[in-house]
Simulated scan of single mutants.
Amino acid sequence: MADPDPDRVLVPSLGRPGEDEALAYALESFPDAEIVLLAVVTPLESPLSEGGVLERDDDRFEEARETAKTRLASVAADSSERVRIETVEGRPGTVVPRYASDEAVDHVVMYGHGTNTSGLVRRFLGRDVATTVVERTDEPVTVLG
């Protein structure tokens, strides 16, 4: 049974539209929880990356962190003391469930990335990230979208 009052809520940040909604939902729905805004940097060899054009010493980690900070400032600057920003590299469907398990997260809130993509895009990318996270995460997952 899901914890109605989680202590730590994970909100993945992949740099896609709709993620502001997930962060706002987590802040409003879980007013006493610490929110972890997880900026995920996709590996260069991944099909979701920029095509391997960038070098390994690129600024993607800092850019992901800045995107997460901007997202936080636009959604709820007054709640920033409750939000911790972390940055990880990996495929979102793998690193989000692993982070949730390893870091004692009680709940995951995310936007339903890819749920409105075409069949061709889905076939290229595999499946949408939200479905993969739901299937691989032991903790409750709220998918918005």
Score class of each variant (00 low, 15 high):
Met1Asn: 12
Pro4Val: 03
Asp5Val: 12
Asp7Pro: 07
Val9Glu: 02
Val11Cys: 04
Pro12Ile: 02
Leu14Gln: 09
Gly15Lys: 01
Gly15Tyr: 00
Gly18Lys: 02
Glu21His: 11
Leu23Gln: 05
Ala26Lys: 07
Leu27Met: 07
Leu27Gly: 02
Phe30Ile: 03
Pro31Asn: 09
Asp32Gly: 14
Asp32Asn: 13
Val36Lys: 02
Ala39Cys: 07
Thr42Asn: 14
Leu48Asp: 13
Ser49Met: 10
Ser49Tyr: 07
Gly51Trp: 11
Gly51Pro: 07
Gly52Arg: 06
Glu55Trp: 03
Glu55Arg: 08
Asp57Phe: 10
Asp57Arg: 12
Glu62Leu: 08
Glu62Phe: 04
Arg65Ile: 13
Thr67Pro: 05
Ala73His: 10
Ser74Pro: 08
Ser74Gly: 15
Ser79Pro: 07
Glu81Trp: 13
Arg82Ala: 12
Arg82Pro: 11
Arg84His: 14
Arg84Pro: 08
Arg84Cys: 10
Ile85Leu: 08
Ile85Gly: 07
Ile85Val: 15
Gly90Val: 04
Gly90Gln: 04
Thr94Gly: 14
Thr94Val: 10
Pro97Glu: 01
Pro97Cys: 03
Ala100Asn: 02
Ser101Tyr: 09
Asp102Ser: 10
Asp106Leu: 01
Val108Cys: 02
Val109Phe: 04
Tyr111Gly: 08
His113Thr: 10
His113Gly: 07
Gly114Ser: 00
Thr115Arg: 14
Thr115Met: 12
Thr117Met: 06
Gly119Tyr: 00
Val121Cys: 00
Arg123Asn: 07
Leu125Ile: 05
Arg127Gly: 15
Asp128Ala: 02
Val129Met: 09
Ala130Ser: 15
Ala130Lys: 02
Thr131Cys: 05
Thr131Arg: 14
Thr131Ile: 04
Val133Glu: 02
Glu135Met: 11
Arg136Asp: 08
Thr137Gly: 03
Glu139Thr: 15
Val143Glu: 05
Leu144Ala: 01
Leu144Trp: 01
